[in-house]
Amino acid sequence: MTVRPRPIPDAVSGFYWAAADRGELAVLRCDACRRLHHPPEVGCPHCGATDLHPEMMSGRGVVFASTAVRQAFDRAFLDAVPYVLVLVALEEDAGVRILADLVDVAPEPVAIGTPVEAVFERHDGWSLPQFRVASA
């Protein structure tokens, strides 16, 4: 049984994990340059402005890159290998990438550009955004 490390929200990321608990994917948008970024920072990586607000995403995107992990690096994932790790480029802005596992697929790299959608894995007291291949 894979016991994943539990993400601990910080002063900036609380909105992200709270959204995940509601089954939503949230990303910060900069009030100044209007661009999105992830992971959440205290200043916009594109312009440095500090007024940033969470915005709910559709949860849809495409596979930007993937790998089928065959070797565990942390003991917690010894039972999990092989699994597919993906960077997902979001529908709202392909420059925003979310790292996740691609669930319910064979353990092979997944073609770049494959449409995917967010699903939320429930744990005891917290939720983890994951992705699966989008239903046609």
């Binding site: 994943r4 539990r6 993400p7 601990i8 929200p9 992971p39 942390d74 790292l99 996740a100």
Partner: peptide, 14 residues
């Protein structure tokens, strides 16, 4: 057992 900082978006996924 816990993932903090930048790791909160990475290590939970293996």
């Amino acid at each position: 057992a816990e993932a903090r900082g930048a790791n909160q978006f990475a290590t939970p996924y293996g």
